[in-house]
């Protein structure tokens, strides 16, 4: 479904991705973790070409992401992206937020788009907040609207870039719960997160990144109980003490 082939990226002189090779299968849930600045956000931002790459190739659903001939609208319509800072449109209600892209990109009639929007928002538990503006919602609710906005495009893949990092602790669970349900339904997901509980419970594989390299990828049981690399052990010892 998603394949990285020897992907390199530089920001100026800074080598942020150093030869990434990675395959994610359909319906697989993969968690990417690592210290900040390790390149994990950049990694998933490359998948829908929010970032360019300088070397290598990324293929999503048989489409070459960084090929100029690729129809980016079609590609991006297949990939839902959830940001750390939600990035909801503040001048639109929840329903307008989720129906904008289906109407403009998929050219779906307003009535049908609103039905889909209502369905998506109900799915994230916000069926009663259709006409609220983002500022009238809590952080957790805003992030769930953002997830619904992605789902409303009926994507094949959902990417999450630290979806709970900007949330107050008591709101993290409601967002993770939505993500758990998605995983159960067989959505292909890559999740950049520090929520190791989520990784252990939901993911099929956990990847550890450091200094732009994929150090270790393993199923969660193995990853947490028998990490192979010293760097992974060090990272886990820091993050799992509390």
């Amino acid at each position: 479904m998603i394949e990285f082939k020897d992907v390199h990226k530089w920001f100026g002189d800074l080598n942020v991705l150093k030869g990434i090779n990675l395959k994610v299968a359909q319906a697989e849930v993969m968690v990417v973790c690592g210290p900040s600045g390790s390149g994990k956000s950049t990694l998933i931002r490359c998948i829908n070409r929010l970032e360019s790459i300088q070397k290598g190739e990324i293929v999503v659903d048989a489409m070459k992401v960084h090929d100029p001939k690729t129809n980016m609208t079609k590609l991006r319509a297949e990939i839902g992206f959830v940001f750390q800072q939600f990035n909801l449109y503040p001048h639109m209600t929840a329903l307008q937020n989720v129906t904008l892209a289906p109407m403009k990109v998929r050219k779906i009639a307003r009535k049908e788009a609103e039905n889909m929007g209502r369905y998506s928002l109900e799915k994230v538990g916000l069926g009663d907040k259709l006409h609220q503006y983002p500022a009238q919602l809590s952080g957790g609710q805003q992030q769930r609207v953002a997830i619904a906005r992605g789902l409303c495009m009926r994507p094949k893949i959902m990417l999450f870039d630290e979806p709970t990092s900007a949330l107050d602790p008591e709101m993290i669970n409601e967002v993770l719960e939505v993500m758990r349900n998605l995983a159960r339904e067989g959505m292909t997901m890559i999740v950049v997160t520090h929520e190791m509980g989520f990784a252990r419970e939901v993911s099929h594989r956990v990847a550890f990144m450091d200094f732009g390299e994929l150090i270790e990828i393993a199923p969660p049981d193995e990853f947490f109980s028998h990490p192979k690399s010293e760097r992974t052990k060090l990272f886990l010892s820091k993050i799992l003490t509390h």
């Binding site: 991006r76 990939i79 992206f81 990109v105 906005r149």
Partner: peptide, 8 residues
């Protein structure tokens, strides 16, 4: 970025 990533 949000608008880009939904394909607008």
């Amino acid at each position: 970025e949000a608008a880009i990533s939904t394909g607008l």
